[in-house]
Design a protein around this nucleic acid. Structure first.
Lengths: 262, 262
DNA sequence: CGTTATGTTGAGTTTATTCAATAACCGTGG
DNA sequence: CCACGGTTATTGAATAAACTCAACATAACG
């Protein structure tokens, strides 16, 4: 089954330049205006596209490496393996995401990156970010801000794992996946292809696949969601957001501290 | 009981300059050499020290604000409150930490910052980081790298919450607190004042205080730790690290991508 | 068309929580 | 210095949440 997730429809961006040569510029452009020079600098990060098959390992935990990646197409996940085969999925990655941040602080990767669908990524060395820091401080600062948003997503998930019921965690995951799919494809509203096995949902939410199944069924019985053919519909979004303890932070984003373009 | 945590003994840092006017420069100086100009720039972030009493709220969730803070003395925690009074402690903060990163992306704070001990913090506006990005790209990039280390700590905790037993989570917390106390005070080896109530441990590990108590007792019965007067001793560090699934990343840190000092 | 991965469901067990009662400790004011 | 009130720690018993094991169903895939 597992339908291919689709991503199209770049959103209109800043008035300064058309960033569509760079997926990452598209992302940044949602929050800040970019000059032509800045877009070109970002485009240089994506000069060497690489195709990944579903299941391909982009980066393995403990591998040495100094590369980061821009994800242009498809979905990846990052995870760690603990002692006895148990896996914690840390995050799902969607087009426009920058992956492999850990290379900025560590010689070896703490986590594994795997493609969940066909995907296209553009690797670049961390030294390119060094250049960016010097030549485009505004871009670099914006990148730091984006990084804070990712950090906040991690933080929200941490709070969810620590203090939310199994049902709430599954609900939160469904909402998050829907939101992130919608970012890439604004045609998506309340129905979307989940693209995850129940085992993957479990590894992301800290549950067993069996229990994930029961929670999905419960949410369905309660008429909060509907399922068919691997597609999920958020039937009662308000109630779902409530059980998930969901907080939409998109309206509080504020990057007005950035330095001017140089 | 709750002994005051003590922090002294600045470690020797880079050969370029003595950063001791700035707690944050001390921290950065462990990883990179700093020029005199850079140290001065960092010192400017700490020009307005502010004292906090134990229990004082430095920043409340949903408050508007554009300030970050350097913690110079004492211990703080950041947490979120969920629906019905339940609290998830996100992180404990020690001297040299920079707090309030979320101000770089959000208008309102997603989390609350509270002093666990007497403390001294230096607030500065996020616009100061903007200046830093332009005038000291190397410093700014190093700051981003530090941020990745914090992110990794969050990630490790996320994996712990999702896939580790209650006993393992408590063990992991004890090791982490010890490590971070030792960073600030190298006199600490295996015995240290915990400085946390069992309820706080529970809110950090996603457990109830009752269960934390049982886990501490169990670790004590197993001779992995010892307790007296609020002081904890890590008796069998190897075994403790094993149950905690602990990974020491300090030896894989690598910041060699940073641009040169300008 | 069989083989493998994924989903579903029930029964029994483990883990952690809740509720409740008691003990130890802390800081404060007399 | 001590008494007192509030917080924190400890322990037991009952309950609830999530897991394990196991069987079977369904869907995906060569």
């Amino acid at each position: 089954m597992r339908e291919t997730l689709s991503f199209a429809l770049r959103r209109p961006v800043g008035k300064f330049a058309d960033p569509s040569d760079s997926c990452f510029a598209d992302r940044l452009g949602r929050f800040v205006d970019l000059t032509t020079a800045e877009c070109e600098a970002l485009a240089r990060l994506e000069e060497r596209p690489r195709q990944l098959r579903r299941g391909a390992v982009l980066l393995r935990a403990n591998d040495k490496g100094t590369e980061l990646f821009v994800l242009r197409r498809g979905v990846l996940m990052s995870f760690v393996l603990l002692d006895y085969g148990s896996r914690q999925i840390l995050r799902f990655h969607f087009p426009g995401d920058m992956l492999g941040w850990t290379a900025l602080a560590y010689r070896t990767s703490p986590e594994t990156l795997v493609a969940l669908t066909e995907a296209e990524v553009c690797p670049f060395d961390r030294s390119a970010l060094s250049t960016l820091a010097v030549e485009h401080p505004r871009l670099f600062a914006a990148t730091l801000a984006l990084n804070q948003m990712e950090r906040q997503a991690l933080t929200d998930r941490l709070a969810g794992l620590g203090r939310t019921s199994a049902r709430g965690r599954v609900a939160a995951l469904l909402i998050e996946i829907r939101d992130r799919l919608r970012q890439a494809n604004s045609a998506i509203t309340d129905t979307f292809p989940l693209g995850l096995t129940q085992e993957e949902i479990g590894d992301a939410t800290g549950l067993t696949s069996v229990h994930v199944n029961r929670m999905l069924r419960q949410l369905e019985d309660e008429m909060l969601i509907a399922r068919e053919n691997g597609r999920v519909t958020l039937v009662d979004e308000t109630a779902l957001a409530h059980v998930a303890n969901y907080i939409d932070r998109s309206h509080t984003i504020d990057l007005n501290w950035l330095p001017p373009s140089r």
